[in-house]
Design a protein around this nucleic acid. Structure first.
Lengths: 105, 105
DNA sequence: GGCTATCTACTACATCTGTCATAGTGTCAA
DNA sequence: TTGACACTATGACAGATGTAGTAGATAGCC
């Protein structure tokens, strides 16, 4: 399904794919800022899970490794996340707007 | 800590406390719309967990049962949730605003 | 005083997520 | 051709969350 809600780490992994169009596991890992870079196998597991959820696909195998790409757009993923939050607020955008205004954003 | 992020069910439980100021487990349960009303013990477990997190406290015991109340305001809880989402977007409100505009809210 | 309804306290369990370790496989340079 | 190194596949585990059953305490009614 396309309406998969992404977790924080999953979203971070997707960021790499959205930015680079396609990438190997290693490239995705390197995309994380050094300070918060997960282990190679953590990224691997996350990509596998995203693949199982249908948010990512393996494009091809290059030499010894796979190339992954996102199957959902960034804005679609963001929309799912935002709608999920709004559902907690009864669908009202008001609390969010109020927060933006109050925090001066 | 005050910055506890609430899960969906936890937030739903808090809604009852925010609305009624204080409530027993049964009252919280009854606050849920019938269609999505969790079992009594599910509400109980959630209240206990919220208590452990410090988001809820037991005010007193009335007869045989406890009365609970929120220790955080609704807007504080919302802020935590919104900030958590924004952190995924690199702190940018733009994706959220764009979504609001696009969906005509 | 005893029965019944209701509460509390405790336990359990599946799924999701973050986090990796390990073992096995494939590739490429020497 | 073979050894080193990177990559893959798989297994594991803990914490959070949703969900609820069960046993034992309690309180009020008859």
């Amino acid at each position: 399904m396309s309406k998969q809600k992404l977790s924080k780490l999953e979203y971070g992994v997707m960021e790499a794919l959205w930015a680079k169009r396609e990438a190997s596991i290693r490239e995705v890992q390197d995309f994380f800022p050094e300070k918060k870079r997960p282990a190679y196998t953590t990224v691997q597991t996350t990509l596998y899970r995203l693949e199982a959820k249908g948010s990512v696909k393996r494009l091809r195998k290059v030499g010894n490794f796979h190339i992954f790409a996102a199957t959902v757009t960034r804005s679609a993923a963001q929309t799912t996340l935002i709608d999920d939050l709004l559902s907690m607020f009864g669908g009202k955008t008001q609390p969010v707007m109020a927060h933006f205004i109050q925090s001066g954003s």
